[in-house]
Amino acid sequence: MRCRAEAIHALAGAELRSALRGRFVQGFGILFAALAVGVALAGLAASGQLVVQGFTRTAVSLLTLSLYLLPLLGLVLGASAFGAEDGGTELLLVQPVSRGAVLVGRTLGLALALAGVGIVGFGIAAVVVASFAGSEGFAGYLLVAAGATAVGMAGLGLGVLIGVLARRRLKAIGGALAAWLCLAVLFDFAAILVLQLTGSGQPGPWLVGLLALNPIDGIRALGLVGLGADVLLGPTGAALERSLGAGRGALLIVGSLGLWAAAPLVVAARIYRHRDF
């Protein structure tokens, strides 16, 4: 047990170091931080000066941005790391360490790198906001940061599974991008279609079910409710708040997010353990 923990620790550390030194994570981290700071700055006020938004407005803007970017980062990181079945993978697997430990250790390292990108992006923007606009609404901002990072982790789990299934880096990255497109863009159209076909067109059980199916939309909705959906979105927001605010809907979405993060990893571990390299 101790050997396994030590191996996981060594692998996670190496993967984290490698990811943080890689151009992809560095570039993505800089991009996300720059966009987050850009969002924190409201733009040019009438006086021609830059003004800084408060935490709540920044959180609302960052919610959408981060829910596009962090799952994309997670998907590509996981797929790229596990899609490359080369001598490096073989060299790891012939060490006196179980394949499960290799998968868990490497995924943990990637998860830490992804969390680092989230913390740096949200953190720098938070410093800018706190310096100029005070700390009101910080709790909601933290909720958004945590939710978006958690969705990134779900993306990472799915990316690992895609990588394990694809066995080739390019194919894996292509699969990851396709999955992101489905979850971040196409799912919304499908959801609108379903809501129209079910006749209501209003938030209700169908909407909660659809939100639970897709962690990006689910956490976006929960984030909006947490930040005050009735104020932000008017009657639709109020209806959304009624659907999710009662507790069960929110629990369903959070539970579904946990499942999205864990289930692909469990399947990936099963495949990884029994596969030929």
Binding site: E6, A7, A10, L11, A14, E15, R17, S18, L20, R21, G22, A84, D86, G87, G88, E90, L91, L92, V94, Q95, P96, V97
Partner: peptide
């Protein structure tokens, strides 16, 4: 084992590579 298409984690230094595998072994 020395595999045919050898690769190491991106950005790692030679000594770090050996340290990683020494810990695993």
């Amino acid at each position: 084992y020395l595999p045919q298409r050898l690769s190491f984690p991106e950005g790692m230094r030679a000594l770090e590579v050996l340290e990683l595998y020494a810990r695993l072994r």
